[in-house]
Design a protein around this nucleic acid. Sequence first.
DNA 1: AGCATGTTTGCGGGTTCCCGCACCCCGACC
DNA 2: GGTCGGGGTGCGGGAACCCGCAAACATGCT
Lengths: 239, 239
Amino acid sequence: MKVLVIEDDPLHRAYLLEAVAAALPECETVLEAAAGGAGEALARAHPEAHVVMDLQMAPRNGIEAARTIWRERPGTRILFWSNYADEAYVRGVSRIVPDGAAYGYVLKSASDERLHLALRSIFVENQCVIDREVRGTQALSFGRKGGFSEGEYDILLDVALGLTDRSIATRRNLSLRTVQNRLQQIYEKLDLHEGNPAAEGTFNLRARAVATALLRKLLNHGALERAEAELAEWLRRQG
Amino acid sequence: MKVLVIEDDPLHRAYLLEAVAAALPECETVLEAAAGGAGEALARAHPEAHVVMDLQMAPRNGIEAARTIWRERPGTRILFWSNYADEAYVRGVSRIVPDGAAYGYVLKSASDERLHLALRSIFVENQCVIDREVRGTQALSFGRKGGFSEGEYDILLDVALGLTDRSIATRRNLSLRTVQNRLQQIYEKLDLHEGNPAAEGTFNLRARAVATALLRKLLNHGALERAEAELAEWLRRQG
DNA sequence: AGCATGTTTGCGGGTTCCCGCACCCCGACC
DNA sequence: GGTCGGGGTGCGGGAACCCGCAAACATGCT
Protein backbone atom coordinates (compact mmCIF):
# COMPACT_ATOMS: atom_id res chain seq x y z
CA MET A 1 0.00 0.00 0.00
CA LYS A 2 1.16 3.51 -0.80
CA VAL A 3 -0.12 6.69 0.81
CA LEU A 4 0.44 10.22 -0.47
CA VAL A 5 0.33 13.06 2.05
CA ILE A 6 -0.35 16.56 0.69
CA GLU A 7 -0.10 19.29 3.31
CA ASP A 8 1.69 22.61 3.21
CA ASP A 9 2.20 23.16 6.92
CA PRO A 10 5.42 21.30 7.87
CA LEU A 11 4.31 20.61 11.44
CA HIS A 12 1.01 19.18 10.35
CA ARG A 13 2.71 17.20 7.61
CA ALA A 14 5.07 15.62 10.10
CA TYR A 15 2.16 14.76 12.35
CA LEU A 16 0.30 13.18 9.45
CA LEU A 17 3.29 11.08 8.41
CA GLU A 18 3.56 9.78 11.93
CA ALA A 19 -0.15 9.04 12.12
CA VAL A 20 -0.08 7.16 8.83
CA ALA A 21 2.89 5.09 9.91
CA ALA A 22 1.21 4.21 13.20
CA ALA A 23 -2.25 3.47 11.83
CA LEU A 24 -1.24 1.65 8.66
CA PRO A 25 1.66 -0.71 9.29
CA GLU A 26 0.90 -2.43 6.00
CA CYS A 27 1.76 0.76 4.15
CA GLU A 28 5.26 0.31 2.74
CA THR A 29 5.73 3.76 1.11
CA VAL A 30 4.62 7.17 2.29
CA LEU A 31 5.03 10.02 -0.19
CA GLU A 32 4.76 13.64 0.79
CA ALA A 33 4.05 16.87 -1.03
CA ALA A 34 4.00 20.42 0.34
CA ALA A 35 1.69 21.95 -2.27
CA GLY A 36 -1.29 21.07 -4.39
CA GLY A 37 0.58 21.08 -7.67
CA ALA A 38 3.37 18.84 -6.40
CA GLY A 39 0.74 16.51 -4.99
CA GLU A 40 -0.96 16.13 -8.35
CA ALA A 41 2.36 15.29 -9.99
CA LEU A 42 3.17 12.67 -7.38
CA ALA A 43 -0.28 11.16 -7.72
CA ARG A 44 0.26 10.89 -11.45
CA ALA A 45 3.56 9.12 -10.88
CA HIS A 46 2.06 6.68 -8.37
CA PRO A 47 -1.33 5.64 -9.68
CA GLU A 48 -2.04 3.18 -6.88
CA ALA A 49 -1.44 5.57 -4.00
CA HIS A 50 -4.21 6.61 -1.67
CA VAL A 51 -4.28 10.27 -0.67
CA VAL A 52 -4.69 12.21 2.53
CA MET A 53 -4.63 15.96 2.07
CA ASP A 54 -5.38 19.37 3.51
CA LEU A 55 -8.03 21.56 1.92
CA GLN A 56 -6.72 25.02 2.72
CA MET A 57 -3.50 25.46 0.79
CA ALA A 58 -1.95 28.27 -1.18
CA PRO A 59 -1.55 28.87 -4.01
CA ARG A 60 -3.28 25.76 -5.38
CA ASN A 61 -6.39 24.94 -3.40
CA GLY A 62 -6.90 21.44 -2.04
CA ILE A 63 -10.20 21.10 -3.85
CA GLU A 64 -8.52 21.94 -7.14
CA ALA A 65 -5.88 19.31 -6.54
CA ALA A 66 -8.46 16.70 -5.53
CA ARG A 67 -10.50 17.47 -8.62
CA THR A 68 -7.65 16.84 -11.02
CA ILE A 69 -6.62 13.70 -9.15
CA TRP A 70 -10.14 12.34 -9.27
CA ARG A 71 -10.51 13.32 -12.90
CA GLU A 72 -7.48 11.22 -13.78
CA ARG A 73 -8.34 8.25 -11.55
CA PRO A 74 -11.87 8.37 -10.19
CA GLY A 75 -11.35 5.40 -7.89
CA THR A 76 -8.73 7.07 -5.71
CA ARG A 77 -9.56 7.15 -2.03
CA ILE A 78 -8.96 10.56 -0.52
CA LEU A 79 -9.08 11.60 3.11
CA PHE A 80 -9.53 15.34 3.57
CA TRP A 81 -8.02 16.65 6.77
CA SER A 82 -9.11 20.20 7.30
CA ASN A 83 -9.27 22.88 9.94
CA TYR A 84 -12.83 23.87 9.19
CA ALA A 85 -16.22 22.43 8.41
CA ASP A 86 -17.31 25.52 6.47
CA GLU A 87 -20.27 24.86 4.26
CA ALA A 88 -18.24 26.19 1.37
CA TYR A 89 -15.66 23.44 1.81
CA VAL A 90 -18.18 20.69 2.37
CA ARG A 91 -20.16 21.73 -0.67
CA GLY A 92 -17.01 22.05 -2.73
CA VAL A 93 -15.96 18.52 -1.85
CA SER A 94 -19.30 16.86 -2.48
CA ARG A 95 -19.40 18.67 -5.82
CA ILE A 96 -16.31 16.88 -7.09
CA VAL A 97 -16.46 13.42 -5.53
CA PRO A 98 -17.03 10.83 -8.29
CA ASP A 99 -19.84 8.29 -8.02
CA GLY A 100 -18.89 5.41 -5.82
CA ALA A 101 -15.56 6.80 -4.70
CA ALA A 102 -14.68 6.37 -1.04
CA TYR A 103 -13.55 9.49 0.74
CA GLY A 104 -13.31 10.94 4.21
CA TYR A 105 -13.52 14.33 5.89
CA VAL A 106 -11.88 14.65 9.29
CA LEU A 107 -11.28 17.84 11.19
CA LYS A 108 -7.84 18.70 12.46
CA SER A 109 -9.31 19.21 15.88
CA ALA A 110 -10.29 15.55 16.02
CA SER A 111 -8.47 13.21 18.39
CA ASP A 112 -5.63 10.94 17.32
CA GLU A 113 -7.89 7.90 17.56
CA ARG A 114 -10.46 9.45 15.26
CA LEU A 115 -7.80 10.12 12.67
CA HIS A 116 -6.35 6.60 12.99
CA LEU A 117 -9.78 5.06 12.72
CA ALA A 118 -10.58 7.10 9.66
CA LEU A 119 -7.31 6.14 8.00
CA ARG A 120 -8.03 2.44 8.48
CA SER A 121 -11.70 2.69 7.53
CA ILE A 122 -11.01 4.40 4.24
CA PHE A 123 -7.80 2.87 3.06
CA VAL A 124 -8.37 -0.68 4.32
CA GLU A 125 -12.13 -1.12 4.52
CA ASN A 126 -12.90 1.21 1.61
CA GLN A 127 -15.55 2.97 3.65
CA CYS A 128 -16.63 6.61 3.76
CA VAL A 129 -15.91 8.46 6.99
CA ILE A 130 -17.34 11.91 7.61
CA ASP A 131 -16.81 13.69 10.90
CA ARG A 132 -19.90 14.36 12.95
CA GLU A 133 -19.49 18.15 12.76
CA VAL A 134 -19.06 17.96 9.01
CA ARG A 135 -22.16 15.82 8.74
CA GLY A 136 -23.94 18.58 10.59
CA THR A 137 -23.18 21.25 8.05
CA GLN A 138 -23.86 18.74 5.29
CA ALA A 139 -27.35 18.10 6.57
CA LEU A 140 -27.88 21.81 7.07
CA SER A 141 -26.76 22.38 3.54
CA PHE A 142 -28.87 19.85 1.68
CA GLY A 143 -31.81 19.48 4.02
CA ARG A 144 -34.94 21.53 4.10
CA LYS A 145 -33.55 23.93 6.69
CA GLY A 146 -32.82 26.84 4.43
CA GLY A 147 -30.59 24.67 2.30
CA PHE A 148 -29.55 25.98 -1.06
CA SER A 149 -30.19 24.08 -4.23
CA GLU A 150 -27.41 23.71 -6.73
CA GLY A 151 -28.88 26.36 -8.99
CA GLU A 152 -29.40 28.84 -6.21
CA TYR A 153 -25.87 28.38 -5.03
CA ASP A 154 -24.54 29.03 -8.52
CA ILE A 155 -26.44 32.28 -8.71
CA LEU A 156 -25.27 33.25 -5.25
CA LEU A 157 -21.72 32.76 -6.48
CA ASP A 158 -22.40 34.85 -9.56
CA VAL A 159 -23.79 37.64 -7.44
CA ALA A 160 -20.81 37.45 -5.12
CA LEU A 161 -18.54 37.81 -8.12
CA GLY A 162 -20.32 41.03 -9.00
CA LEU A 163 -22.25 39.99 -12.08
CA THR A 164 -25.32 41.87 -13.24
CA ASP A 165 -28.71 40.19 -13.24
CA ARG A 166 -28.68 40.38 -16.98
CA SER A 167 -25.29 38.75 -17.40
CA ILE A 168 -26.20 36.04 -14.92
CA ALA A 169 -29.26 35.37 -17.04
CA THR A 170 -27.29 34.97 -20.25
CA ARG A 171 -24.62 32.92 -18.54
CA ARG A 172 -27.07 30.49 -16.97
CA ASN A 173 -29.48 30.49 -19.90
CA LEU A 174 -32.35 31.95 -17.93
CA SER A 175 -34.65 34.88 -18.31
CA LEU A 176 -33.81 38.03 -16.41
CA ARG A 177 -36.96 37.74 -14.36
CA THR A 178 -36.11 34.18 -13.37
CA VAL A 179 -32.75 35.25 -12.08
CA GLN A 180 -34.45 37.91 -9.99
CA ASN A 181 -36.93 35.36 -8.70
CA ARG A 182 -34.12 33.09 -7.55
CA LEU A 183 -32.45 36.04 -5.92
CA GLN A 184 -35.68 36.56 -4.02
CA GLN A 185 -35.55 32.98 -2.78
CA ILE A 186 -31.93 33.46 -1.77
CA TYR A 187 -32.81 36.61 0.18
CA GLU A 188 -35.55 34.65 1.87
CA LYS A 189 -33.35 31.72 2.85
CA LEU A 190 -30.74 34.10 4.19
CA ASP A 191 -33.34 35.75 6.44
CA LEU A 192 -32.53 39.14 5.03
CA HIS A 193 -36.02 40.42 5.80
CA GLU A 194 -36.90 38.88 9.14
CA GLY A 195 -33.79 39.83 11.05
CA ASN A 196 -34.24 43.57 11.13
CA PRO A 197 -37.57 45.00 12.13
CA ALA A 198 -37.47 48.70 11.33
CA ALA A 199 -34.16 48.60 9.49
CA GLU A 200 -35.95 48.75 6.19
CA GLY A 201 -33.99 50.34 3.41
CA THR A 202 -30.70 50.48 5.29
CA PHE A 203 -29.45 47.46 3.37
CA ASN A 204 -28.64 46.82 -0.23
CA LEU A 205 -30.06 43.31 -0.39
CA ARG A 206 -27.73 42.10 -3.10
CA ALA A 207 -24.64 43.14 -1.19
CA ARG A 208 -26.13 42.11 2.13
CA ALA A 209 -26.74 38.61 0.82
CA VAL A 210 -23.08 38.22 -0.03
CA ALA A 211 -22.07 39.55 3.37
CA THR A 212 -24.27 37.16 5.34
CA ALA A 213 -23.24 34.24 3.14
CA LEU A 214 -19.63 35.05 3.92
CA LEU A 215 -20.30 35.47 7.61
CA ARG A 216 -22.08 32.11 7.70
CA LYS A 217 -19.14 30.60 5.85
CA LEU A 218 -21.43 29.55 3.09
CA LEU A 219 -18.93 31.25 0.83
CA ASN A 220 -15.24 31.63 1.44
CA HIS A 221 -12.14 32.78 -0.30
CA GLY A 222 -11.40 29.47 -1.98
CA ALA A 223 -14.89 29.13 -3.41
CA LEU A 224 -14.70 32.69 -4.72
CA GLU A 225 -11.36 32.01 -6.37
CA ARG A 226 -12.64 28.93 -8.11
CA ALA A 227 -15.75 30.75 -9.28
CA GLU A 228 -13.67 33.68 -10.47
CA ALA A 229 -11.49 31.37 -12.56
CA GLU A 230 -14.56 29.77 -14.15
CA LEU A 231 -16.00 33.20 -14.82
CA ALA A 232 -12.81 34.39 -16.52
CA GLU A 233 -12.89 31.26 -18.67
CA TRP A 234 -16.49 31.91 -19.64
CA LEU A 235 -15.79 35.55 -20.41
CA ARG A 236 -12.93 34.55 -22.70
CA ARG A 237 -15.11 32.04 -24.52
CA GLN A 238 -17.79 34.69 -24.86
CA GLY A 239 -15.42 37.07 -26.63
CA MET B 1 10.47 37.36 32.41
CA LYS B 2 7.12 35.83 31.63
CA VAL B 3 5.79 34.96 28.21
CA LEU B 4 2.21 34.12 27.35
CA VAL B 5 1.57 31.96 24.29
CA ILE B 6 -1.90 32.17 22.72
CA GLU B 7 -2.41 29.72 19.88
CA ASP B 8 -5.28 27.37 19.20
CA ASP B 9 -3.48 24.77 17.13
CA PRO B 10 -1.86 22.30 19.57
CA LEU B 11 1.02 21.43 17.24
CA HIS B 12 1.87 25.04 16.62
CA ARG B 13 1.51 25.81 20.30
CA ALA B 14 3.98 23.09 21.21
CA TYR B 15 6.39 24.41 18.61
CA LEU B 16 6.06 27.92 19.98
CA LEU B 17 6.67 26.81 23.56
CA GLU B 18 9.82 25.06 22.45
CA ALA B 19 10.99 28.09 20.48
CA VAL B 20 10.40 30.41 23.42
CA ALA B 21 12.31 28.11 25.76
CA ALA B 22 15.22 27.92 23.32
CA ALA B 23 15.40 31.59 22.41
CA LEU B 24 14.72 33.09 25.82
CA PRO B 25 16.57 31.18 28.55
CA GLU B 26 15.98 34.12 30.90
CA CYS B 27 12.27 33.48 30.72
CA GLU B 28 11.27 31.69 33.90
CA THR B 29 7.57 31.13 33.23
CA VAL B 30 5.75 30.30 30.02
CA LEU B 31 1.97 30.45 30.11
CA GLU B 32 -0.20 29.02 27.40
CA ALA B 33 -3.73 29.57 26.22
CA ALA B 34 -5.64 27.78 23.47
CA ALA B 35 -8.14 30.53 22.69
CA GLY B 36 -8.40 34.28 22.56
CA GLY B 37 -10.68 34.61 25.57
CA ALA B 38 -8.51 32.42 27.79
CA GLY B 39 -5.49 34.41 26.65
CA GLU B 40 -7.06 37.69 27.74
CA ALA B 41 -7.85 36.25 31.16
CA LEU B 42 -4.29 34.99 31.62
CA ALA B 43 -2.89 38.34 30.50
CA ARG B 44 -5.05 40.03 33.10
CA ALA B 45 -3.72 37.69 35.78
CA HIS B 46 -0.09 38.24 34.78
CA PRO B 47 0.31 41.93 34.02
CA GLU B 48 4.04 41.73 33.33
CA ALA B 49 3.88 38.95 30.76
CA HIS B 50 4.84 39.52 27.16
CA VAL B 51 2.63 37.90 24.55
CA VAL B 52 3.16 35.88 21.40
CA MET B 53 -0.05 34.93 19.63
CA ASP B 54 -1.71 33.71 16.50
CA LEU B 55 -4.05 35.96 14.56
CA GLN B 56 -6.41 33.45 13.03
CA MET B 57 -8.34 31.84 15.84
CA ALA B 58 -11.94 30.83 16.36
CA PRO B 59 -14.21 31.87 17.89
CA ARG B 60 -12.43 34.93 19.30
CA ASN B 61 -10.19 36.55 16.72
CA GLY B 62 -6.56 37.26 17.56
CA ILE B 63 -7.01 40.93 16.75
CA GLU B 64 -9.89 41.16 19.19
CA ALA B 65 -7.81 39.57 21.93
CA ALA B 66 -4.85 41.84 21.20
CA ARG B 67 -7.07 44.88 21.30
CA THR B 68 -8.44 44.14 24.75
CA ILE B 69 -4.97 43.28 26.05
CA TRP B 70 -3.55 46.52 24.71
CA ARG B 71 -6.50 48.49 26.02
CA GLU B 72 -5.81 47.24 29.52
CA ARG B 73 -2.01 47.61 29.33
CA PRO B 74 -0.83 49.60 26.33
CA GLY B 75 2.84 48.86 26.98
CA THR B 76 2.56 45.11 26.44
CA ARG B 77 4.87 43.73 23.79
CA ILE B 78 3.09 41.39 21.41
CA LEU B 79 4.54 39.20 18.71
CA PHE B 80 1.99 38.15 16.12
CA TRP B 81 2.77 34.81 14.52
CA SER B 82 0.45 34.30 11.59
CA ASN B 83 0.02 32.16 8.52
CA TYR B 84 -0.77 35.03 6.21
CA ALA B 85 0.28 38.55 5.37
CA ASP B 86 -3.17 39.49 4.09
CA GLU B 87 -3.65 43.21 3.89
CA ALA B 88 -6.73 42.79 6.04
CA TYR B 89 -4.66 41.38 8.90
CA VAL B 90 -1.85 43.90 8.55
CA ARG B 91 -4.27 46.77 8.48
CA GLY B 92 -6.19 45.35 11.41
CA VAL B 93 -3.04 45.13 13.51
CA SER B 94 -1.73 48.59 12.72
CA ARG B 95 -5.17 49.93 13.57
CA ILE B 96 -4.96 48.78 17.16
CA VAL B 97 -1.29 49.10 18.11
CA PRO B 98 -0.93 51.84 20.75
CA ASP B 99 1.57 54.66 20.30
CA GLY B 100 5.06 53.63 21.23
CA ALA B 101 4.24 49.98 21.85
CA ALA B 102 6.71 47.44 20.53
CA TYR B 103 5.28 44.63 18.49
CA GLY B 104 6.26 42.12 15.86
CA TYR B 105 4.71 40.31 12.93
CA VAL B 106 6.34 37.08 11.82
CA LEU B 107 4.97 34.59 9.34
CA LYS B 108 4.65 30.95 10.27
CA SER B 109 6.56 30.09 7.13
CA ALA B 110 9.61 31.91 8.48
CA SER B 111 12.65 29.90 9.53
CA ASP B 112 13.41 28.96 13.13
CA GLU B 113 16.19 31.54 13.26
CA ARG B 114 13.90 34.31 12.13
CA LEU B 115 11.44 33.44 14.87
CA HIS B 116 14.18 33.21 17.52
CA LEU B 117 15.65 36.52 16.41
CA ALA B 118 12.25 38.16 16.53
CA LEU B 119 11.58 36.82 20.03
CA ARG B 120 14.84 38.27 21.36
CA SER B 121 14.53 41.56 19.49
CA ILE B 122 11.08 42.30 20.83
CA PHE B 123 11.14 40.91 24.34
CA VAL B 124 14.74 41.74 25.22
CA GLU B 125 15.68 44.71 23.05
CA ASN B 126 12.18 46.19 22.94
CA GLN B 127 12.38 46.59 19.19
CA CYS B 128 9.76 46.26 16.48
CA VAL B 129 10.24 43.38 14.06
CA ILE B 130 8.13 43.10 10.95
CA ASP B 131 8.71 40.35 8.41
CA ARG B 132 9.86 41.43 5.00
CA GLU B 133 6.75 40.06 3.27
CA VAL B 134 4.52 41.81 5.76
CA ARG B 135 6.39 45.06 5.19
CA GLY B 136 5.65 44.60 1.54
CA THR B 137 1.90 44.53 1.96
CA GLN B 138 2.19 47.33 4.51
CA ALA B 139 3.91 49.58 1.97
CA LEU B 140 1.42 48.57 -0.66
CA SER B 141 -1.34 49.42 1.75
CA PHE B 142 -0.27 52.88 2.84
CA GLY B 143 1.80 54.01 -0.11
CA ARG B 144 0.59 55.75 -3.19
CA LYS B 145 0.26 52.51 -5.12
CA GLY B 146 -3.47 52.23 -5.04
CA GLY B 147 -3.39 52.33 -1.27
CA PHE B 148 -6.64 52.93 0.55
CA SER B 149 -7.05 55.76 2.99
CA GLU B 150 -8.66 55.09 6.31
CA GLY B 151 -11.92 56.67 5.23
CA GLU B 152 -12.08 54.79 1.97
CA TYR B 153 -11.43 51.52 3.75
CA ASP B 154 -14.25 52.21 6.18
CA ILE B 155 -16.65 52.79 3.34
CA LEU B 156 -15.43 49.68 1.57
CA LEU B 157 -16.26 47.75 4.72
CA ASP B 158 -19.71 49.31 4.90
CA VAL B 159 -20.38 48.39 1.31
CA ALA B 160 -19.17 44.85 1.92
CA LEU B 161 -21.59 44.62 4.83
CA GLY B 162 -24.42 45.48 2.48
CA LEU B 163 -25.28 49.00 3.60
CA THR B 164 -27.06 51.44 1.34
CA ASP B 165 -25.32 54.58 0.16
CA ARG B 166 -27.77 56.58 2.20
CA SER B 167 -27.20 54.66 5.42
CA ILE B 168 -23.44 54.85 4.94
CA ALA B 169 -23.82 58.60 4.63
CA THR B 170 -25.75 58.96 7.87
CA ARG B 171 -23.45 56.57 9.68
CA ARG B 172 -20.27 58.35 8.61
CA ASN B 173 -21.79 61.84 8.78
CA LEU B 174 -21.34 62.52 5.10
CA SER B 175 -23.51 63.63 2.28
CA LEU B 176 -24.91 60.96 0.00
CA ARG B 177 -23.01 62.38 -2.95
CA THR B 178 -19.74 62.26 -1.04
CA VAL B 179 -20.23 58.61 -0.30
CA GLN B 180 -20.79 57.97 -3.98
CA ASN B 181 -17.68 59.97 -4.84
CA ARG B 182 -15.59 57.86 -2.51
CA LEU B 183 -17.10 54.77 -4.03
CA GLN B 184 -15.91 56.09 -7.37
CA GLN B 185 -12.38 56.37 -6.03
CA ILE B 186 -12.61 52.87 -4.64
CA TYR B 187 -13.74 51.53 -8.00
CA GLU B 188 -10.84 53.33 -9.59
CA LYS B 189 -8.23 51.99 -7.20
CA LEU B 190 -9.59 48.49 -7.65
CA ASP B 191 -9.19 48.80 -11.43
CA LEU B 192 -12.80 47.89 -11.98
CA HIS B 193 -12.87 49.80 -15.25
CA GLU B 194 -9.51 49.10 -16.82
CA GLY B 195 -9.50 45.35 -16.48
CA ASN B 196 -12.31 44.49 -18.82
CA PRO B 197 -12.28 45.87 -22.31
CA ALA B 198 -15.72 45.35 -23.79
CA ALA B 199 -17.22 43.78 -20.70
CA GLU B 200 -19.15 46.95 -20.00
CA GLY B 201 -22.33 46.44 -18.06
CA THR B 202 -21.69 42.82 -17.17
CA PHE B 203 -20.68 43.83 -13.67
CA ASN B 204 -22.50 45.38 -10.78
CA LEU B 205 -19.69 47.66 -9.66
CA ARG B 206 -20.70 47.70 -6.02
CA ALA B 207 -20.70 43.93 -5.78
CA ARG B 208 -17.67 43.58 -8.01
CA ALA B 209 -15.68 45.85 -5.74
CA VAL B 210 -16.36 43.59 -2.78
CA ALA B 211 -15.41 40.54 -4.81
CA THR B 212 -12.07 41.90 -5.96
CA ALA B 213 -11.29 43.21 -2.48
CA LEU B 214 -11.88 39.73 -1.14
CA LEU B 215 -9.85 38.10 -3.87
CA ARG B 216 -6.95 40.46 -3.19
CA LYS B 217 -7.28 39.66 0.51
CA LEU B 218 -7.90 43.29 1.24
CA LEU B 219 -10.92 42.06 3.13
CA ASN B 220 -11.29 38.73 4.85
CA HIS B 221 -13.67 36.94 7.12
CA GLY B 222 -12.21 38.30 10.34
CA ALA B 223 -12.41 41.90 9.18
CA LEU B 224 -16.00 41.36 8.10
CA GLU B 225 -16.90 39.87 11.46
CA ARG B 226 -15.43 42.79 13.35
CA ALA B 227 -17.16 45.27 11.08
CA GLU B 228 -20.45 43.40 11.44
CA ALA B 229 -20.20 43.57 15.22
CA GLU B 230 -19.56 47.32 15.10
CA LEU B 231 -22.46 47.75 12.73
CA ALA B 232 -24.81 45.84 15.02
CA GLU B 233 -23.70 48.05 17.88
CA TRP B 234 -24.35 51.19 15.85
CA LEU B 235 -27.74 49.93 14.75
CA ARG B 236 -28.73 49.28 18.35
CA ARG B 237 -27.63 52.75 19.39
CA GLN B 238 -29.56 54.18 16.49
CA GLY B 239 -32.78 52.60 17.69
C1' DA C 1 -4.22 88.50 -1.70
C1' DG C 2 -4.13 85.35 -5.51
C1' DC C 3 -3.92 80.96 -7.18
C1' DA C 4 -3.78 75.88 -7.36
C1' DT C 5 -5.31 71.60 -5.57
C1' DG C 6 -8.27 68.56 -3.40
C1' DT C 7 -12.58 67.57 -0.89
C1' DT C 8 -17.50 67.95 -0.17
C1' DT C 9 -22.05 68.84 -1.79
C1' DG C 10 -26.15 69.59 -5.01
C1' DC C 11 -28.62 68.52 -9.45
C1' DG C 12 -30.18 65.63 -13.14
C1' DG C 13 -30.54 61.83 -16.09
C1' DG C 14 -29.85 57.08 -17.58
C1' DT C 15 -29.52 52.43 -15.88
C1' DT C 16 -30.11 48.64 -12.79
C1' DC C 17 -32.43 46.55 -9.08
C1' DC C 18 -36.44 45.11 -6.06
C1' DC C 19 -40.81 43.24 -6.20
C1' DG C 20 -46.01 42.70 -6.89
C1' DC C 21 -49.12 40.90 -10.47
C1' DA C 22 -50.46 37.87 -14.02
C1' DC C 23 -49.63 34.26 -17.55
C1' DC C 24 -47.81 29.99 -19.37
C1' DC C 25 -46.02 25.38 -19.24
C1' DC C 26 -45.69 20.84 -17.39
C1' DG C 27 -45.71 16.96 -14.38
C1' DA C 28 -48.66 14.99 -10.50
C1' DC C 29 -52.54 13.35 -8.53
C1' DC C 30 -57.69 12.58 -8.10
C1' DG D 1 -60.08 14.50 -18.40
C1' DG D 2 -59.58 17.96 -14.77
C1' DT D 3 -57.17 20.71 -11.77
C1' DC D 4 -53.46 21.89 -8.89
C1' DG D 5 -48.87 23.40 -7.57
C1' DG D 6 -44.33 24.82 -8.81
C1' DG D 7 -41.04 26.92 -11.77
C1' DG D 8 -40.03 30.08 -15.70
C1' DT D 9 -41.43 34.44 -18.03
C1' DG D 10 -43.28 39.26 -19.22
C1' DC D 11 -44.82 43.96 -17.58
C1' DG D 12 -44.59 48.00 -14.83
C1' DG D 13 -43.52 51.08 -11.11
C1' DG D 14 -40.80 52.87 -7.36
C1' DA D 15 -36.31 53.00 -5.32
C1' DA D 16 -31.37 52.80 -5.41
C1' DC D 17 -27.24 53.30 -7.95
C1' DC D 18 -23.71 55.19 -11.40
C1' DC D 19 -21.81 59.27 -12.99
C1' DG D 20 -21.00 63.88 -15.45
C1' DC D 21 -21.31 68.77 -14.41
C1' DA D 22 -20.63 72.63 -11.54
C1' DA D 23 -20.58 75.33 -7.36
C1' DA D 24 -18.91 75.83 -2.59
C1' DC D 25 -15.24 75.10 0.71
C1' DA D 26 -10.78 74.11 2.90
C1' DT D 27 -5.89 74.27 2.54
C1' DG D 28 -1.27 75.30 1.15
C1' DC D 29 2.01 77.81 -1.65
C1' DT D 30 3.94 82.04 -3.99
